[in-house]
């Protein structure tokens, strides 16, 4: 365990000094503050608190931004070290490849957690100060949004590692990472929508649709946050869908965790077999 923690400590320290990470965290904070303070202004007569509106806004922001930050941190985690010669050096020390991967994962998830708490926490605090008490459940949904943002980020960190060990070249890995981001965050839903329209409800039943949504961690996150709480689902316009979704919150969290475990294990297995 000791080498894992030493690795995690180095990754965390290196990450918080990384300009890309600092830059995206600041961007995240700026966007979330803007959404929180400007987006929640016209809530006086709709019966929802500013915090609930903020959760809806930030959930949509998370789906675009958090996977991008996660992939930025992770795509060259292995390939970059191999390229710089430090992987060979690390492997000459009494540390296994699994320990290296686990240490990197813990370190990177900690960076992402910090970025999320700083970025979104600022928005939550600002809304709290500006608008006072929120309605019941709003704080819980905000905390759920923070937690699931970290989980979503962890899935894309694990996917970044898969890219890193399969592609093996940092420059190509950067391109593939952008492709993966586009696929899960933008193209998948567009393709799904197109498929639904083309199918006209003939073969894609609600069950099939639910399973197809589980095949994308960004959609699991969306389901978890935008349909999990009644006030949020109404606000986000997903109340209709939330009645159709056949999975509870626990199942969705398990699905998100599976999206972490499976790619991380795959990355570990491939890494263990790669010639350095």
């Amino acid at each position: 365990m000791r080498p894992v923690l030493i690795m995690a400590g180095r990754e965390f320290r290196d990450g918080i000094r990384n300009r890309r990470v600092v830059g995206t965290t600041l961007l995240m904070a700026a966007l979330s503050l803007t959404l929180a303070l400007l987006g929640s202004a016209p809530t006086g007569t709709v019966g929802a608190s500013a915090l609930s509106v903020t959760v809806v806004s930030l959930s949509s922001l998370t789906i675009f931004l958090v996977p991008l930050i996660a992939l930025l941190i992770s795509y060259d985690a292995i390939a970059g070290e191999v390229d710089r010669g430090t992987m060979l050096l690390l492997l000459s020390y009494p540390v296994t490849r699994w320990q290296i991967l686990a240490g990197k994962f813990i370190g990177h998830v900690c960076i992402l957690t910090l970025a999320t708490i700083l970025g979104y926490g600022a928005a939550g605090v600002a809304v709290g100060i500006a608008n006072g008490a929120a309605e019941q459940g709003a704080a819980a949904s905000f905390v759920m949004m923070l937690g699931s943002s970290v989980l979503l980020g962890a899935t894309f960190i694990a996917l970044g590692y898969v890219i890193s060990v399969v592609v093996w070249d940092p420059r190509t890995a950067a391109g593939v990472a952008i492709g993966v981001w586009l696929f899960f965050v933008v193209l998948y839903d567009m393709a799904l929508l197109g498929l639904l329209i083309a199918d006209q409800g003939k073969s894609i039943t609600p069950t099939v649709l639910s399973v197809m949504l589980l095949a994308n961690p960004a959609d699991i996150f969306r389901l978890l946050n935008l349909t999990g709480f009644s006030n949020i689902s109404t606000l986000s316009g997903m109340a209709g869908l939330s009645a159709q979704v056949m999975f509870g919150g626990a199942t969705l969290v398990i699905a998100l965790v599976a999206w972490i475990v499976v790619p991380l294990s795959a990355a570990g297995l491939i890494f263990a077999r790669r010639q350095i």
């Binding site: 180095r10 320290r13 290196d14 000094r17 990384n18 710089r84 010669g85 430090t86 060979l88 050096l89």
Partner: peptide, 11 residues
């Protein structure tokens, strides 16, 4: 000591 090793520049 590997050939051309590049340590993390921020450390």
């Amino acid at each position: 000591l590997p050939e051309n090793v590049v340590f993390p520049p921020s450390m």
